Simulated assay, not measured.
Amino acid sequence: MPLSSVQPAIDALVQAWCDHRTTDAAPFAPAIASAAQAYAVQQGVAERLAWFTPGAPPYWKTGGPSRQAVQTHARLPERGIWHSPASTDWPFAMRGIEAEIALRLAVPVDAALAAGLDRDSASQLVDAMTVAIEVVDSRWTQGGQAPDLLKLADLQSHGALVLGDWLPFDAEHDWATQRCRVEISGAPAQTFAGTHSLGDPAWVLAAWLRHATQGGQVLPAGSVVTTGTWCGVLQAKAGDTVVATFDGIGSARIAFSA
């Protein structure tokens, strides 16, 4: 897609990332009228900021509000992928908290393989899972109230990703009864059970793999995808420590020192 129509949005987001500030979304809404344009902005920003190491297994986020909705996707900057326990003084505009499960590919996947996948066959390509905390942030001043396509252009409001320890993936795991607990400093722990929006983190795999292998891309073994929140978006602040625990799977922790 020609970048001329989306170049102003790319420029604005690059500047916001570099200056650690937000920018008004309103002027860019008319130009970002399709998901294809939003994904072009994602790619343009990533290229300008040199986020990705050639050949390295990539990190992605994907998900949707229901199985009937179209999933959205974003490849994540390597600079914001941290192993738990993590501590950061990054000046986030927001510190939204999503407790998630991340999955890791065991084998390379190309477009030909991805084209025929469903939930069960895609699950066979995964070797490991872990607890993840996604920090939700925005380069738009409107934050979560920005237009959906502009949020998609801005990495679907991604800030950082904290990953716990990996353990073998069980394709038959009982996600309907899976319990998740989120603790944020100074607030009572919140518990959630069976609350993944698609009912199963592995449900996202087929659509994600088809998106990520477009244009001849091959996802190498070791590629990671985080699969959507179990707790909605909770709010943390500077000075808070956040712990997400999934019974029988593990936990992840992040401390916000600023």
Rank of each mutant, 00 (worst) to 15 (best):
P220Y: 09
A236V: 08
V225G: 03
A212M: 04
G222F: 04
S197P: 14
T241I: 03
T213E: 11
S197H: 15
D240P: 15
G239E: 13
Q214F: 08
T227C: 01
T241R: 14
G250C: 12
A212P: 05
V224D: 01
G250Y: 05
W208M: 14
G222D: 03
T226K: 13
V233R: 00
V242W: 01
S197E: 10
Q235L: 11
L234F: 13
S197C: 12
G250I: 02
G248R: 03
V233N: 01
L205F: 12
L219G: 12
W203I: 02
A236D: 08
V225W: 00
W208T: 05
S223R: 11
G228E: 04
S251W: 06
V242R: 04
H211V: 02
Q217N: 13
T229D: 13
G250V: 04
K237R: 15
W208A: 15
S223K: 10
A202N: 04
D247M: 07
G222R: 06
V204W: 01
L205H: 12
V243E: 09
G228W: 11
D240F: 14
T213Q: 10
T226L: 10
R210M: 11
A207C: 02
A202D: 05
L205P: 09
H211P: 01
C231P: 07
V233H: 05
D247S: 13
G239R: 13
R210F: 12
F246T: 00
V225R: 03
G215N: 04
P201H: 13
P201C: 14
V225F: 06
Q217M: 10
G248M: 11
P201L: 12
V233M: 13
W203L: 03
V224A: 01
G250F: 08
P220S: 10
L198V: 07
A244E: 00
V243M: 08
G222I: 07
R210Y: 13
W230P: 01
A202W: 02
D247N: 05
H211R: 11
G199K: 00
L205E: 10
C231V: 04
W230C: 14
Q214N: 08
T245E: 09
L198G: 07
T227F: 02
D247W: 06
A206F: 13
K237A: 15
T229W: 13
G228N: 09
T241W: 03
V204Y: 00
T241G: 06
V204S: 15
G228C: 09
P220C: 02
G215L: 06
V243S: 08
S251Y: 02
S251L: 06
W203N: 01
A207D: 15
A236F: 10
L234S: 09
A206Y: 09
V233L: 05
T226G: 12
G216A: 10
A202M: 02
S223G: 15
G228Y: 10
L219Y: 11
L198S: 11
T229F: 14
A206Q: 06
V243D: 03
Q214Y: 04
G228R: 06
F246A: 02
G250T: 01
W230Y: 15
P220K: 04
S251M: 07
I249V: 15
H211M: 07
W230H: 15
S197G: 11
A244W: 00
V233S: 05
G248W: 06
L219Q: 11
A244Y: 02
A244S: 13
T226H: 10
A238Y: 03
L209Y: 11
L234V: 05
T226I: 14
D240C: 13
D247E: 15
T227V: 02
G199M: 02
V224C: 03
V243P: 01
W230Q: 14
L234I: 07
W208Q: 05
